[in-house]
Design a protein around this nucleic acid. Structure first.
Lengths: 224, 224
DNA sequence: TCATGTGAACCGGTTCACAGCC
DNA sequence: GGCTGTGAACCGGTTCACATGA
């Protein structure tokens, strides 16, 4: 028994925990398919992202994806379905504020792994950087932020700047129309509730790793 | 009523969720103190890291820290106590594998925010990088990894290298004696259960942000 | 009245266990 | 036997509600 899921179910908003794992399934599946497999069992998919088979079945259940007890799940159909469920939409764009080492790393990484995600502009205050291009991205001065983004505000903004400027930048991005932020700066941003903020706190991850390394025996963790 | 907590309680291993928030308290408290406050209420501390007062009180309870209903908690004592509870120990060291843009960003960031954390060596395969120094860190060639780390293995290893080399590097680090890894590479590492792996998956965070930006109205998230 | 400290209720998420099917 | 699909149990974490004390 095999089914493409109902549109309704896809568009219903899914629990955060499920969304987090769908991201991982989506990244691991192409490799599985490239290895010559057309189908995959919950046990195998669980193995790929270090979770349990029951968890995999539950996850696929949340958007009504079904497989066959004999052959497992159709890997191609599953991958396509996750893409539909999670986006990004082909039209999604992003902007980056702060093109230091971290910003550079992000631009390189995204250009390689996410060619579908448009990043027309990045911003910095360093005059030496302004005017440079990285792949399809042009670096502009912070002063031009409103001017350049106003007409077609990107859905996502990434903050990779020193702490003192973070709140101000965030506010400006939101005012221009950005709907979600990925924040690499360790501050609590004060923003309207309608904006989704995904914080990546590297120092905090590091502290956790050090703490858990003291007590013996722990298993793989993390993600978000 | 005010108390320094029992040693036993400090050293007992704390729930991951609590550890995660202790990191944040620890980072926000110095600012609070610098603003001239000596004491802090659960309501205020909650505000600083965007959580609830009840949550704060529960957290402090897990290591037996108590305050006074009248004056709240002693901010200095609290900060000191969290430091003791969470480390890193002054002797803790770290090593970095992969000194690309991300690696550079990490070295800069840590040198600024964590002068206490020793990073004597970083490793790369690029001969142009080998021999350079960044702050107190010297870049060596991957071939020398065992030789240089064997005698005093760092507690923590950070992986910031391209995907194909990740598993191999991780195995070598663990063999040399590293107890915890911070992994920026989107692969599931196969390692003994005694090693703690903290994965930071930037692409995945980005996907989540984009997904939640579609559905209206979400609140601040993330951390770890 | 207002804050702390805490048992108890609650909730999302995960795992268990098993029916159904090949 | 193996797998999927799923109700039910379980568990960690969060919030509630209130006793206690200044």
């Amino acid at each position: 028994m095999q089914s493409a899921p109902e549109e309704d179910l896809i568009m219903a908003s899914m629990p955060p925990a499920v969304v987090a794992r769908l991201c991982e399934y989506r990244r691991q599946l192409p490799g599985w398919i490239a290895d010559g497999h057309d189908r995959i069992f919950s046990r195998e998919l669980a193995e790929l992202i270090a979770t349990s088979p029951a968890q995999v079945r539950r996850d696929l259940m949340t958007f009504g994806f079904t497989g066959s007890p004999v052959h497992g799940y159709d890997a191609h159909l599953l991958l396509r379905t996750i893409h539909e469920a999670m986006g990004p939409a082909p039209s999604d764009t992003m902007t980056l504020v702060g093109v230091g080492h971290l910003g550079h790393a992000l631009l390189n990484y995204l250009a390689r792994t996410r060619p579908d995600l448009g990043i027309p502009w990045a911003f910095d205050i360093d005059p030496d950087l302004v005017g440079q291009t990285h792949g399809k991205t042009t670096i502009a001065h912070m002063d031009q932020l409103e001017e350049l983004l106003q007409d077609a505000p990107p859905r996502l903004g990434v903050l990779a700047i020193p702490r003192p400027h973070a709140q101000d930048c965030a506010t400006r991005l939101v005012r221009v129309g950005v709907r979600a932020l990925m924040n690499f700066v360790p501050v609590k941003l004060e923003l309207p509730d309608t904006v989704h903020v995904e914080s990546v706190d590297i120092a905090c991850s590091l502290d956790r790793a050090l703490y858990f390394a003291r007590s013996e025996g722990s298993v793989e963790a993390g993600g978000r």
